[in-house]
Write a protein that binds this DNA or RNA. Structure first.
Lengths: 337, 337
DNA sequence: AAGGTAACTGCACACATGTGCAATACTTTA
DNA sequence: TAAAGTATTGCACATGTGTGCAGTTACCTT
């Protein structure tokens, strides 16, 4: 569409001409461990600085690894996602990679387009934070020698590395905490996202309750957000048999739920109502909330991702599970009254 | 350090061989508007799909524009930054660009490294969301034909496009709202970040108050965060002559400030204390806060950035100012009692 | 001083692409 | 049917690197 002139960058040849050496000398000057005499190196550096030369990583990427890692992510404004992107880009950078962010919707078509971009730019690896990539494209990535790491998507896709938090543990522990607090009528709040992680937390919680002879009212609101949490609370407390202990599969849901429960229904947390979330986003620690929750250990997870990328042979297809960390705050009573 | 084999991608030559045509034919098949017969195009597409071929954008980037845009950003977990990154990546993608995110600290050394990466990857353009890039590097970028867009950094750097919100307007309006609410003792809460934007909001507010014959107590806490807002509140209300109306240069500061004022000092908002923020992050609208604030119109700003990139001739060095939108909520009294 | 060795340098190739130019195949017109 | 015109194709070049290989230089040892 646009016939824009490409930017005119300075090439190694120009530097070589100015320094009066061969282009190879320039290349070697900028290559770790290559053999160049101190004299030529100095001449080259001088010319390079004068001209403002910077090695072209695109061209370099033609011969060897591109050092590009693609990050496929949706819902980037969600606090937990923002933190993950932050930490990942940081750690990837620190290990010499550069991050391309592809912002998708969670629908498959959109993710497919993202995966194609990954291939177009010859990324060494693709990290998928959200959405469900189609198996066929994953295979293409892997066939081309790319590494694929899926985070918190537990669809087992052949050849990709999987990494996620132990949702089952959170579901069981949440139930334990609520029971210990003496809650009689349990509730579970989830979104309609249908992500495997969310579903797993829900199912384990409900099953564990059933095993203990307790019933759970499941409420499914809209997308994973504060507003959905509010709406869920209005639905839950707008009728009889309202719960006195709820597990929200996400902190955002929990915070919206708490606000409506307190402000619109006059409930006291944790006296009348105990609330547990999941993620440990920053807002959960704010003094208005003090939400008991499970922290996703993002730092160790990101470390694990970087490790996988640096040592591809470690990339077993078996799923790596990381334990979430229970964060005890004041939205749950310590023991039954 | 690592002698990792580069991924083995399928090239246009392989497709050509399989389809029994020349490599040019393959190239033209994937080039908009090039001349290829329907028959060969079909043969090529078939071979390409069978092999899983994807055009190498790195190689393409050698001859023409790379379509890469670098986003230099710090404090990515801040809600306002996360939203900006989200919106920008989205819009850039929609206009055929791909985004490289470079996560920096705000210190100059770190930003310099980021700018060098930009040059290494032959980005068409660099968008700086945070930090202050050194003028010399900006010049290098521009000399190489790159476009540089600085957002909310009003250091006027020669040749770069500048874009930001009208901080002065917000400062003046904040004062007006507080005075109309009948506030007598004004306070201003700021961070120690020292960003030009923050400083400008502060100075305009203080000056406007002075012009009206009012005094303002300025409190400078730590970095721009909820915790700094809390700390500021403890400092402010822990002594005599505490304010009954404050302008916090950032929503995060305002929310922390409000929480401590209400929970630790028993103040009622807006009855005893009026609070105004800036940014309109999502949490400002949460029912626990209902913060009156000024919205950064991120969508129009991002549109403007994309426009600038697509029409470089529009990139005047003059600064583009966008008006923040006053968002009226309940943290300020509508009129004096 | 001769010979051997180690350090350095430059040539040429490979990497994957887009396109100008000339050659060829096909279609239309007189 | 021939000529003229048009659509398609392939060659070869250019883009900027890194590196194997061979050739050159400097230095050290005997």
């Amino acid at each position: 569409m646009s016939e824009l002139k490409p930017p005119s960058f300075v090439s190694a040849q120009m530097v070589a001409d100015r320094a009066g050496v061969s282009r190879s000398a320039v290349s070697r000057t900028f290559t770790e461990g290559a053999s160049v005499s101190e004299a030529t190196r100095r001449k080259v550096m001088e010319a390079a600085n004068a001209l403002g030369y910077h090695v072209n990583h695109l061209a370099r990427g033609l011969r060897e690894r591109s050092n590009i890692v693609c990050l496929v992510v949706a819902d980037m404004t969600t606090p937990i996602r923002a933190r993950m992107v932050d930490i990942l880009t940081r750690k990837l950078q620190a290990s010499g990679k550069i991050t391309m962010v592809i912002n998708t919707e969670t629908d498959t078509e959109s993710v497919s387009a993202a995966l194609r971009q990954t291939l177009n730019y010859r990324a060494d690896a693709t990290v998928v934070l959200s959405g469900t990539p189609p198996a066929s494209l994953i295979e293409t990535c892997i066939a081309n020698g790319q590494q694929v790491v899926l985070i918190n998507r537990d669809e087992r896709l052949q050849g990709s590395s999987n990494l996620g938090v132990d949702n089952a543990m959170a579901g069981r522990e949440a139930l334990y905490l609520l029971r210990r607090a003496g809650c009689q009528r349990l509730g579970l709040i989830t979104s309609n996202a249908g992500t495997a992680s969310l579903v797993e937390r829900e199912e384990v919680f409900v099953q564990a309750a059933r095993d203990a002879g307790l019933n759970v009212t499941v409420t499914q609101a809209g997308p994973t957000s504060y507003q959905s949490g509010q709406e869920a609370a209005r639905r839950v407390f707008g009728r009889s048999a309202s719960p006195d202990g709820v597990f929200c599969v996400t902190d955002l849901l929990a915070l919206g739920f708490m606000d409506v429960a307190r402000q619109e229904f006059g409930l006291k947390v944790p006296d009348d109502l105990c609330v547990i979330g999941f993620d440990d986003i920053e807002q959960a620690s704010w003094s208005s909330y003090q939400l008991t929750t499970f922290r996703q250990p993002l730092d160790p997870m990101a470390d694990e991702v970087v490790d996988l990328l640096l040592q591809p042979e470690r990339a077993v297809s078996e799923r790596r599970l990381i334990e979430p960390i229970p964060i005890w705050r004041r939205s749950v009573r310590p023991a039954s009254a």
